Computed example of a mutant assay.
Amino acid sequence: MATLTQTAFQALEPGKAALPLLTFEQFSLPPSNQRVLGAPHAEGTTIPLALRPSNPDGAELELDTVIETIKSLQAQGGILTKKLSQHGALLFRGLPVHNADDFSKFAHAFGYKPRYIIGVVVNRPEMAPNVAPANESSKDLTISMHNESDEVPHAPEYVFFYGHRVAKSGGETPMASSLELFRRVQQEIPDFIAQLAEKGILSRVTYKVDKQSAGGSTLKQAFGKAFQDGDDAATKRAKIEAQIRRYGRGAHTTWEWLDGGVVLTHRLPAIRTQPGTNLPTLFTGLAASTRIARARVSSRQDTSQQLFGDGTPIPDEYLDRLKEIADEIRVLHKWQRGDVLVYDNVIAQHGREPWQGEQADRVIMASLFDGEQVPGAYNDEDWAQVVQALDG
């Protein structure tokens, strides 16, 4: 059977002896790319856990071999999923992944359920099964640390990124532990955590018929997957509202129609708990709400706003210190072509750094999946409960 060690991975085939599939070895990255996590993680735990295939005989590595090894490991109680729950992120380097189709096959080998995206705020045109561009916004834009889809109720549990084309300068992907972030913020600004726990947040997201920014989504891309040629305005509106109701949160998700669009307001928990451990995790993108971040987007229309759950503004001093802590505990992944990063989105945040050169110099693809469980509620309030999207 395959095991996650620095020795050979092995899997049993029916009617045959145990055959070696693939050997992975753990390796170290520069300190700017990898760090030892603080509490509540176990001593010596790194982010990311870096893995690469060991191929001593020099034979060409086949993607099918990689896929069968991943499937074998996952069949043994979800070995890789457990590693994700410990480290928050895995880096696979040196794989025979060369395009969107290869990436799709690799990501699907983990056995997770592809996520049906509702209310996407960035344009995600499909490039291969469950594969889309990670983000097509301007290369000059910094994307602050966040958990994927923190601004809407239905967030993926697992996020895969593939470096198809990498910038020569810049374009790193930051990563940090949401568990460690919660612990640090609770220690340093406990009143902030107390208010988040008591009130949650109000997330207001605006969707317009026309795209609002480079890489952003339109109303049709966000909620119009069921549109058909010939639908009139009333039919389209009904189909959009049916998609919104799939969030499954009743009165805690409301909407208001505007000229040329709709504004959704979600009351959401910014603190959730990790399935299996019940450790609190700061599940948020509030670092994008600091004064500096707001100034960066002043030249374009911002599509989202986050307040305390009672509608009051979150003090700037809280947001500024939150971002400082997130930056203190993050590492920057310097991409090599073909790298695949896998995030446990419940306990790990990511972002994006600007890069030099042309927009097309950096192409990162993403694949999003649901897990078996959603992150748990930190308290018993009805608004703090999150669920998977309802079947359409």
Rank of each mutant, 00 (worst) to 15 (best):
A8C: 10
K211T: 14
S177W: 04
G170H: 06
D64V: 07
G163D: 09
L196H: 01
R165I: 04
Q274P: 02
K199H: 12
P133W: 00
K211C: 12
P153A: 08
Q301P: 03
S85T: 12
L390N: 13
L264I: 12
G309R: 07
Y112A: 07
T253D: 13
K236I: 01
A42L: 12
R352Y: 06
H146I: 00
N99T: 04
P48C: 02
P313K: 09
D316T: 07
P375K: 03
E353W: 05
I67Q: 06
L264Q: 05
M1Y: 09
G276Q: 01
K239E: 11
D370Q: 11
L282S: 05
G311C: 07
E180I: 01
I325C: 05
Q195K: 15
T23W: 11
D344P: 12
V346Q: 01
E172C: 09
A50E: 04
T46F: 03
I193E: 11
E381V: 01
E317I: 04
G44Q: 08
L282W: 05
K334M: 06
L196R: 01
V166L: 11
S298E: 14
Y112V: 01
Y343W: 09
T281Y: 00
W355C: 06
G376V: 00
Y116V: 10
L390G: 06
D101E: 15
K82I: 01
A128F: 01
H146T: 03
V386Q: 14
Q356R: 12
H146L: 05
A134V: 02
G309S: 11
A288W: 03
L268M: 11
V185D: 05
K139N: 15
